[in-house]
Amino acid sequence: MVVGMTLETFLQQLINGLSIGSLYALIAIGYTMVYGILRLINFAHGDIFMMAAYFTYFGIAVFFLPWYVTFFITIVLTILLGVGIERFAYRPLRDAPKTSLLISAIGVSFLLENLATYLFSGKPQAFPNFPLMTNPINFGSLTVQPVSILIPIVTFFIMIGLLFLINHTKVGMAMRAVSVDYDTAKLMGIKINGVISSTFAIGSGLAAVGAILWCMKYPSVLPLMGVVIGLKCFIAAVIGGIGNVKGAVLGGLILGFSEVLMVAFFPALTGYRDAVAFIILIIILLFLPNGLLGKKQVEKV
């Protein structure tokens, strides 16, 4: 090992990587599902995550609602936001050139960021403490925040549920059909709009869960918090193979571990922590353009 590191700190870093990786995974699923169906990088997804963080913040710190009410409201509002964005900013452009759709996604992202800055001010707001979740507990010589354990568990169960939904339900089958062949699926009588709306609903719901957990672990919210997280999570989806839910989780974990371990082993490079994702992206694009679990895409002529 480069730096003298004890087994305890190493394990601690691993748990850290696992929890941040799981958070990335939750958000990456939203990117991968939308890309799978619309072939669109939903630039607004990171900002949907940011809005969810603000919803939670307002529920708990401003309106003093009980946490379970706040979480419920956050998830509902975020789903409405995600589905609304698709309805008003993406659906009208579905037959337009792809560039227009991409610009619209960037426009929504930019609008949400500016709206948040305008409404909630650009200053970071401190998220209230959840003592139950953040007070460290000791396992022998290991000290761990309960939230760091909760995050991977929640992610695991969500992934199981989602895979069941995709592989064993009617709406899941419709989603798979649309992602394989949009036009044929349409001809087969699948209600495309419904499928797309449910995709956005699921993605946004997961982003809301991610935001709630994120704020427990990193208790601060600000309007531009979704930008870098969003970019990283899209990259996580690319690493795992875009369009593939398991891949998104895998990519998120890989990214989380790489970041944490780089900082642990090379403290001098701490300033470059946010660059890790992009370096992995370049490497993946060079050697495995379809990602780890992705299928080769064939363009129709």
Binding site: I41, K98, L102, V228, L231, F234, I235, V238, D274, A275, A277, F278, L281, I282, L285
Partner: peptide, 13 residues
């Protein structure tokens, strides 16, 4: 459209 992400990433890096 990975170029969009890679270039955005570049400008951040």
């Amino acid at each position: 459209d990975y170029l969009a992400i890679a270039t955005l990433g570049f400008s951040e890096i």
